[in-house]
Design a protein around this nucleic acid. Structure first.
Lengths: 143, 143
DNA sequence: CTGCACTTTGCAACCCAGTTGCACAAAATC
DNA sequence: GATTTTGTGCAACTGGGTTGCAAAGTGCAG
């Protein structure tokens, strides 16, 4: 019986990434997460993998534009699957993120695209990191 | 002859920070810098000070809202003097920053305020980190 | 199938920014 | 001047990130 390719494998494939076991694990973890994940979170979630393996898988994903990186200021970066329609070169799905200073989690505000600014002459824009900070609904209501 | 208080000391004073020698040094370095500075840059610039001293001075400044913090993704945060008019509680001078991926420097785009977004119900906004990335004019022209 | 080249992985070691404990120096207070 | 409080330097630690290297896995030609 032939091996049915999962959606995860298809996703890797569409980014020209050979789907090894480790890569599938990491990719699935990221895909199922509702929030962007940090290296160490992935490390904990997939205990079978070594830190360096996760690191290298993530680096590879980044090179192939399967994930993008965001800094929330909580010491270290987070990774999130790109949902851009074409999935290559430029991410067209960059959206606003929100970092809760109370529970220190990072939320995707998928509905809200990043507002653009017109930079002064000469600057070449590649990407934008828009990180709003404050209290998430849950933490705000606990006050 | 009486000790003339420098503008730097006045600035510290206005934020209720006792102006010690170290604090004046750090504050002046920040004030004179055209770009936000990292902990290690300050460390190098003021060789007489220990890393931990700079760190503690910066932490103090942050608590007293004399500086604000920004993440440019170049490993580690940067500090910048607040130029808010009242200088307390909320920074009203938050502006766009630009990180050059070539020379890895961070620029203040002072003219451009951070565009606001209306967050979903429940979120309480405190601050926004808006970091545009790409090539600065100098690096872009070198290509 | 077998041997060989290349890729992927795990381990251990390393790097470095940030951070903390502690003891001493400086300043403020009594 | 003695005592308390505050600030500082040193050294050590932490934790995320990164790399070298050798072993395991994979693909392919013969």
């Amino acid at each position: 019986m032939k091996h049915e390719t999962s959606p995860i494998e298809a996703l890797l494939d569409s980014h020209n990434i050979k789907p090894t076991a480790n890569r599938i694990l990491v990719c699935r973890a990221l895909a199922e997460a509702k929030q962007p994940m940090s290296l160490s979170e992935l490390e904990c979630e997939i205990l079978s993998l070594d830190k360096s393996s996760v690191f290298r898988v993530l680096s590879l994903f980044r090179e192939h534009h399967l994930v993008h990186v965001l800094e929330d200021g909580s010491d270290g970066v987070r990774y999130e699957i790109c949902h851009s329609t074409d999935g290559h070169e430029h991410d067209d799905d960059q959206h606003v993120h929100f970092f809760c200073e109370c529970c220190r989690r990072t939320f995707c505000i998928n509905d809200i695209p990043i507002p653009n600014v017109s930079l002064p002459q000469g600057y070449v824009l590649e990407s934008i990191n828009y990180m709003a900070k404050g209290l998430c609904p849950k933490c705000a209501s606990k006050k």
